[in-house]
């Protein structure tokens, strides 16, 4: 979503993005003229008249599970967004019984919070596991 019109979205898709992604952009490119939606999400930069690089993860109940907002010159990390969704999905599938430690990704151990785990995380989770 950006403040551009849907017509500009079409031109950007047809003339540039479709040369980077085969078949063009697969998802909807939303238009937010005037930044009304961006203002509600706290990412509209009034002085510049544009929206910051905000990324919101919204779960199947419509709850915001996480967001990241960057100023315009630095791009986001798609892998990190995917990792966070996988982690939130894992939490949801466990019905909240499991928690995902720093750097968790599929295949790495999860934590099962409870009285037995208090003060014992160091035994099963090492700081090196926070890194890839």
């Amino acid at each position: 979503m950006s403040v551009d019109s849907v017509f500009v979205h079409k031109m950007w898709n047809d003339h540039e993005l479709s040369k980077m992604v085969e078949g063009g952009i697969p998802f909807a490119m939303l238009s937010d003229g005037g930044g009304k939606v961006g203002s509600v999400f706290g990412v509209y930069l009034e002085d510049e008249g544009v929206e910051a690089r905000g990324r919101f993860i919204i779960d199947p109940d419509g709850i915001i599970q996480g967001f990241e907002v960057l100023t315009p010159p630095v791009g986001r990390n798609v892998n990190e967004s995917i990792r966070q969704i996988q982690a939130f999905q894992h939490v949801r599938n466990s019905k909240g019984t499991e928690a995902m430690p720093s750097g968790w990704k599929p295949g790495k151990p999860t934590l099962k919070p409870g009285p037995e785990l208090v003060g014992k995380v160091w035994e099963i989770w090492k700081t090196s596991m926070a890194f890839d």
């Binding site: 979503m1 950006s2 403040v3 551009d4 500009v8 979205h9 031109m11 950007w12 540039e16 937010d32 961006g38 999400f41 990412v43 510049e48 544009v50 929206e51 910051a52 690089r53 905000g54 990324r55 919101f56 993860i57 919204i58 779960d59 199947p60 315009p72 010159p73 630095v74 791009g75 986001r76 967004s81 969704i85 939130f88 999905q89």
Partner: peptide, 14 residues
């Protein structure tokens, strides 16, 4: 699951 992304503008390089 929804990812909602905002960005400064079409054709803006990043």
């Amino acid at each position: 699951w929804v990812i909602l992304c905002f960005y400064p503008g079409d054709f803006t390089f990043v």
